[in-house]
Design a protein around this nucleic acid. Structure first.
Length: 635
DNA sequence: GTCCGTCTTG
């Protein structure tokens, strides 16, 4: 039934009118709570209690309790509780479960438990099931997943039939290992056909990292699939860092023509575009959003777009979106600050951070990571140290391992290796792989074998399968001419079945992506590209007399190893020069960090060819122009 | 009329 309601107002108690002719108090109350007008609902309730004619009965209490919980008013809930006792309606299933649920929403879980304990085991099964569901959800809400599961087991011991509501309450917060058994339960009682349950299972598998099982559930869903199912699968891939699969699935969704993407879809896809540096897909989505007025003001989308442009090299566009926002969340500020940091604009990052604080937003741990890493990339060591010391004192953010990793990086880059390792020793929390990894990285820059070995010893214990650290130490050794060390790392990697990640770079040209892998000839223009690299290298050598490094590196059998191969970024830059007009900026995205040799190459070539190269590597952006890089060789 | 949720950004 559709009720005609006056628009929401901030009416005072006295102004709140009673029900109109032919409308009961209870109906009016429910209309108000359904519309989310909980304040008015409670005002009405107060009038009901003052003029109890007809007296409020059991049918009034559930809606009233809902309103009390929504307004975070424990006292109101307690009053309603005593009303229920005095009127003898506590045993009424709807009153009981509404009360259970209200207490748990009000963070008064012990009261819910006590109520639950008083429920008679001989109550009708339907009542018991709903009471169990309410208490299970209360535990799940308070991140007590094992308590929720224990209740579920109790439910089954009592031979009570669980239902979709039970599973929907359990799945979102349950432990990874609990997902398959709950799935089995769902199958046994034929609940997997229920779309909400299937979507929930899909998300639970994805959260547990079992994306292939999630995908299997997705594929088994009947067509046309719900938008929510597409979104769950897309976000599942995105949360697991599987950006290419996100883009594949998004394309499939578009081609199916079943559903239109909504902001939830687009946010997941944009995050993956940002991750990959897939500028053209991202920009296409941006145009799509611009055409949909309903999406235009969505703050999630705006934040995702800021992140996209910052990570694809267009800081100006990111800033434009940021400046035009009417409302900004901490996500907006963080994306923008991190953007400046990645591009080496430390001063701009800090200015923005101060503006954020002035606007009344309290810094959190994530924005502090962006601030510290911005200082690190810009070589603003003293500023970084100052913000780190202010973190806890002024902002109430307790430094975690991720902040220590930033500081070790900051000090390490600046050559203050001893101070960096002292900082690690002083850590009140256990250092993680990133902390030791940052020290190892600093040892690579400053060629410190001894400390590098120490850092490596710790980091392999914590992340034995992370290839990057083996490569780093191997490079430390080879820079120091310690070929025994290089050989040792290589055999260690071989024993553990680890292979060096292939370096790959890509650039977009007229909307299509061109991928380059080191020493790979599969690109249609490979011949021309390799010739171009050789030509450019010769020119570069001529221009600054630089020789490619380390010709003398040999393997265990004494055979000379070709060290300076055709790295992917050189191929990408050569391709860019061959296929774009003079003056066009060439943007390259790379998976690993740029090596010194390629960095030098690109500096020199930017001068020779009079071109601007923008290269995003695994740690930051490099803007090459006129023979210099924006990182000031500090990366 | 009570229990529940699946999808969102740094």
């Amino acid at each position: 039934m559709i009720q005609r309601l006056p628009p929401p107002t901030q009416k005072s108690d006295k102004e709140e009118t009673g029900p109109t002719e032919g409308e009961s108090w209870t109906t009016r109350l429910r209309v108000l709570t359904d519309a989310g007008r909980h304040g008015e609902a409670l005002a009405l309730l107060r009038r009901m209690f003052r003029h109890p004619n007809p007296p409020p009965d059991a049918s009034t209490l559930p809606a009233a309790l809902l309103a009390a919980a929504a307004l975070s008013l424990p006292s109101a809930a307690a009053q309603l509780h005593s009303r229920a006792i005095s009127s003898g309606s506590l045993a009424h299933p709807f009153v009981l479960t509404a009360l259970l649920s209200s207490y748990s929403r009000l963070s008064l879980l012990p009261l819910s438990r006590r109520l639950f304990a008083d429920v008679s085991p001989s109550a009708p099964a339907a009542t018991l099931v709903v009471a169990f569901n309410a208490l299970i959800s209360g535990h799940a809400r308070h991140s007590l997943p094992s308590g929720a599961l224990a209740l579920f087991r109790g439910m089954r011991r009592s031979a009570l039939p669980f239902n979709a509501v039970t599973l929907l309450a359990l799945l979102p917060s349950c432990a990874h290992s609990a997902v398959p058994p709950l799935h089995a339960c769902a199958i046994r009682v034929a609940l997997t056909g229920e779309p909400s349950v299937a979507n929930c299972l899909l998300s639970a598998y994805a959260r547990a990292g079992a994306v292939d099982l999630a995908r299997q559930m997705f594929d088994e869903m009947p067509n046309p699939k719900q938008l929510i199912s597409w979104n769950a699968m897309i976000s599942g891939y995105a949360q697991n860092g599987l950006a290419p699969r996100v883009l594949d699935l998004y394309r499939e969704m578009e081609q199916s023509g079943e559903v239109e993407p909504d902001p939830v879809t687009l946010v997941g896809v944009l995050a993956s575009c940002a991750h990959l540096g897939a500028d053209s897909v991202g920009r296409r989505i941006e145009r799509y959003i611009a055409q949909n007025p309903a999406h235009g003001s969505n703050i999630y989308l705006k934040n995702a777009l800021i992140n996209l442009h910052a990570r694809c090299g267009d800081l100006a566009r990111a800033r434009e979106i940021f400046d035009m926002m009417q409302k900004r969340s901490i996500f907006s500020w963080t994306a923008m600050i991190a953007g400046y940091g990645m591009h080496g604009h430390g001063v701009a990052a800090l200015q923005l951070f101060e503006r954020m604080r002035a606007s009344g937003i309290r810094p959190d741990g994530v924005v502090m990571v962006s601030v510290l890493s911005a200082c690190s990339h810009a070589g603003m060591t003293e500023e970084g140290l100052e913000y780190f010391s202010k973190m806890e004192r002024l902002f109430g953010v307790v430094p975690g391992p991720e902040h220590y990793a930033c500081m070790v990086d900051l000090l390490g880059r600046a050559g203050r290796l001893e101070q960096a390792s002292d900082l690690i020793k002083s850590m009140p929390v256990e250092p993680d792989g990133a902390v030791w990894g940052a020290l190892l990285g600093a040892c690579k820059i400053h060629k410190n074998v001894e400390l590098g070995e120490l850092a490596f010893k710790h980091v392999v214990k914590l992340e034995p399968m992370n290839v990057g650290y083996y490569v780093l130490l191997s490079n430390v050794y080879s820079d120091a001419g310690r070929l025994d060390g290089v050989a040792r790392i290589r055999s260690m990697m071989r024993r553990r079945g680890l292979r060096k990640d292939a370096g790959c770079s890509y650039m977009e040209l007229e909307g299509s992506v061109h991928l380059f892998v080191a020493d790979d000839h599969s690109h249609p223009q490979a011949r021309r590209i390799y010739e171009m690299v050789v030509k450019l290298e010769a020119l570069a050598k001529e221009a600054c007399g630089v020789e490619s490094k380390k010709d003398e590196l040999r393997n265990e059998k004494g055979k000379i190893l070709p060290v300076t191969g055709f790295h992917s970024e050189k191929l990408a830059v050569a391709f860019g020069l061959l296929n774009t007009e003079a003056g066009t900026e060439i943007v390259v995205i790379k998976n690993l960090r740029v090596c010194e040799d390629c960095h030098l190459f690109m500096k020199v070539v930017s001068n020779i060819a009079n071109r601007k190269f923008v290269v995003r590597d695994a740690s930051r952006f490099h803007h090459f122009e006129g023979g210099v890089c924006s990182c000031k060789d500090y990366w």
